[in-house]
């Protein structure tokens, strides 16, 4: 089994990225390419659904940090949902839960980033 696989869905103008497995220094380039690919397509609203993410190291956090200014300068954002306990602990320990909006479920995150979907 691969250490990391990444699925991408587009819901309206939101790119939902679902990393499954482990993001570490070995797999981070694949994760970065998935994020950068959305930005290059002009998609600045990015939701990371982490339901199948077992693990993220500082390499992965750096990849997110490396794009946050670009997406926010373009009226977008990077949101997080469905964090497993140990992944939440990493984000929270480093203060990322103050930098990024975190939601229990994907639907709640989508409603926050694209509120017109609720209608």
């Amino acid at each position: 089994m691969a250490d990391l696989s990444i699925a991408v869905r587009h819901i309206g103008d939101v790119a939902v990225i679902l990393p499954a497995g482990f993001i570490n220094a070995h797999t981070v380039r694949e994760f970065e390419e998935a994020l950068e690919g959305q930005v290059q397509q002009g998609r600045y609203k990015i939701l990371l659904n982490c339901k199948d993410l077992n693990y993220i190291s500082s390499a992965g956090l750096g990849a997110i940090m490396g794009l946050i200014e670009t997406v926010r300068e373009n009226d977008g954002d990077i949101l997080l949902s469905n964090l497993q306990e140990n992944v939440f602990a990493i984000f929270d320990t480093l203060g990322f839960t103050q930098l990024y909006r975190v939601f229990p479920e994907e639907d709640q995150a989508l409603a926050a980033v694209a509120p017109e979907r609720k209608a």
Binding site: S57, S58, A59, L61, G62, M65, G66, I68, E69, I90, T93, L94, L99
Partner: peptide
């Protein structure tokens, strides 16, 4: 002042 890097030692 977010930046890339420097987080591993902190973790």
């Amino acid at each position: 002042h977010p930046r890339k890097g420097g987080l591993g030692l902190l973790l």
